[in-house]
């Protein structure tokens, strides 16, 4: 659905995007992560045809993308990070959406607008002026605008930034629902915990280069140098964490209520050894769980510590 080959964008001597290769199949939710200035927005802008690539190829819908072909843009929906709603603050939500529905030549626009507004629970404000909308309402309205013409691809730039927890949940549910209908979704966000819940696959971009790209689970596995094993016990004797720490493969151990939190290296299965150790101490493990590093933790690892390692991974891919 979306494919790029050697995508490069230079602004003078500064390289914003440096040879990005993407391959996003139909129906996937793809997340692009990266710190500020990493090249996320430049990449999206090139995919949208707003910024011309310095080098490289873009393929959308299986054919080379020509930004001058306005008909292809009818198959794309975009939710930008910032909305210039101030320009249309004199319009009601319906008038605003009607303008875009006409622009996209949406059939049966009235029903489509009402259906989408009801999906995001904005039906009651259909005749309210946009100038009176809260940030969360504007974000939902922007979503509705992007979905009006039933696009094949949805580009979302920081879609949940600035929303309250309920708003985040509503937008998350909407994204997942749209994806279930077969829509390909490309998200750029810094809210990593949300990306973790939504994306099938993520890529991490830093200094214009894709440092890593994988399915969420594999990426987290590859990124973590260590993992945690959580063992529930009836009670934790005070000396136990120190005794566990003395085991050769244990990096760290602490008690958290009745749960023993043990940090071990990423490679190897230590659950059997730990169980045997605890049983010898007359302690019965009630449950043993392995905890993956969160994407948030992995992201910190990427941007602060492991850029070189990831670059090497990227080259070997």
């Amino acid at each position: 659905m979306i494919k790029t080959r050697g995508l490069v964008k230079k602004y003078g001597s500064f390289t914003a995007v440096d040879g990005v290769d993407l391959n996003i199949p139909t129906g996937e939710i793809y997340g692009l992560l990266g710190p500020n200035g990493a090249g996320k927005t430049s990449t999206i802008m090139m995919l949208l045809g707003i910024v011309k690539p310095t080098r490289g190829d873009i393929f959308l819908f299986g054919e080379p993308y020509n930004p001058k072909r306005l008909d292809l843009r009818k198959r794309i929906g975009v939710v930008p990070e910032n909305h210039p709603h101030g320009m249309w603050s004199w319009m009601t939500a319906y008038e605003y959406l009607e303008m875009f529905a006409e622009l996209f030549e949406v059939k049966d626009k009235e029903r489509r607008i009402e259906k989408l507004l009801s999906q995001v629970r904005l039906s009651e404000v259909i005749n309210k002026k946009i100038g009176e909308f809260s940030r969360g309402m504007l974000q939902k309205l922007s979503f509705v605008r992007a979905l009006l013409h039933d696009p094949d691809i949805l580009f979302l730039d920081e879609p949940i930034s600035g929303l309250d927890p309920l708003g985040i949940k509503q937008i998350r549910d909407l994204i997942l629902e749209e994806n279930r209908e077969g829509r390909t979704i490309f998200i750029s966000s810094h809210l990593l915990s949300e990306m973790e819940k939504i994306c099938h696959r993520v890529a991490i971009i830093s200094r214009g280069r894709l440092m890593a790209e994988d399915r969420m689970e594999s990426l987290l596995n590859n990124l973590s140098r260590e993992r945690k094993i959580l063992i529930d016990l009836e009670s934790i004797p005070s000396e136990l964490p120190d005794e566990v720490k003395r085991l050769s493969y244990v990096l760290d151990c602490r008690g958290d209520g009745n749960t023993l939190v043990i940090t071990v290296p990423r490679e190897g299965d230590y659950r059997k050894g730990l169980s045997e150790f605890l049983i010898k101490k007359n302690l019965i493990p009630l449950s043993i769980k392995e905890q993956m590093v969160s994407l948030e933790e992995a992201f910190v690892t990427i941007t602060k510590e492991n850029v070189e390692m990831l670059a090497a991974m990227g080259e070997s891919r």
Partner: peptide
């Protein structure tokens, strides 16, 4: 000029317009 500055033209240009 103002519409260009605040990104309104960019938003419209995401669709079948330029």
């Amino acid at each position: 000029s103002f519409e260009k500055k605040v990104g309104a033209i960019e938003l419209i240009s995401y669709g079948p317009a330029d």
